[in-house]
Design a protein around this nucleic acid. Sequence first.
DNA 1: GATAAAAGACTGACTAGACAGACAATAAAG
DNA 2: CTTTATTGTCTGTCTAGTCAGTCTTTTATC
Lengths: 175, 175
Amino acid sequence: MSAAIRVIASQGLGAPTATIAKEAGVSNGSLFTYFQTKADLLNQLYVELKAELAAAALDGLPTKGRIREQMLHIWTNWLRWATSCPEKRRTLAHLGVSDEITLDSHQTASRTMAGIAKLLERSRENGPMRDVPLGFVAALMSALADATIDFMIRNPAGADKHGMAAFKALWRIVK
Amino acid sequence: MSAAIRVIASQGLGAPTATIAKEAGVSNGSLFTYFQTKADLLNQLYVELKAELAAAALDGLPTKGRIREQMLHIWTNWLRWATSCPEKRRTLAHLGVSDEITLDSHQTASRTMAGIAKLLERSRENGPMRDVPLGFVAALMSALADATIDFMIRNPAGADKHGMAAFKALWRIVK
DNA sequence: GATAAAAGACTGACTAGACAGACAATAAAG
DNA sequence: CTTTATTGTCTGTCTAGTCAGTCTTTTATC
């Protein structure tokens, strides 16, 4: 898996399975004893990375305290994870838009992100977004995070400042 | 070009050039008399679609009037174009994240979007986003629009309502 | 108007290379 | 000896791009 992350991050989804196997230090054939097809590998990788992102985002979340602080906690964790594992984040970006990823994988992934959605639900209570589907607000938040991370990576100077500016923007959206 | 849009929208960037040629009603060989390589075709297509999007967004923009109304005009046009040409929009989404698209094409494309950026610049005057790079705000707006369109297409019921909710969210971000 | 010549657009079979996945052979372990 | 894990070669398929030759259109000549 970690070999796949490294290879896909640098070569994209078109990377040959042989390259991934080599990077992992096993033969081409062995790879197919662990994953039936390349698509299988990609789907598993997608679900795993999403779960890791969700776990990273929720890590150390204070159970008490104001919602805004909890949300900021998640936001900060999210950005930190993405910027400190640029390869994982890049691979995830590739996988997220691939049509090799099944509907099932997407659903599984979104289930692992439920913790974040729950907090987002509470965040928007009585806010201007209270009357649209939660999935829509979640999509906007995710898009905002992705765009922010992209910019931070391309523009490391002032990354933290931009991350914070984007959080405030997010908060203005929901609250 | 329009054949490429149709084929890529349904098959992704991996679509064989032969399929595109067939859809266009010409031979495989002819395609390469008009485009040196497949990448050339994709880059031209990307720039063209971005230009079309920009033109559609700015179409009929009232020169006078409040900025908010002008911005809403652009926003509405943007969403209308994307939802009424789902194939173009889908193809553009594929191209936008492809690494076949050169830096040069991206720059050319962003130049054609300058009109929108200019209005965005005025929109954020004295607003909370006044101190971050304009490119960052533009990236957030673009991400918001994309996510909104995605949701509208997957969720046609209440599409207009969601489009308007997203615009208000955008306005809360910048103003 | 009829014929011929030149230009160039178009064709589709072909090449060379890449890749996913299969499989027979080998090594390791119990 | 049996079972299981691993190997790396092999194959069938697919695809970007080529090119020798055909067909169509335009131009020139009588």
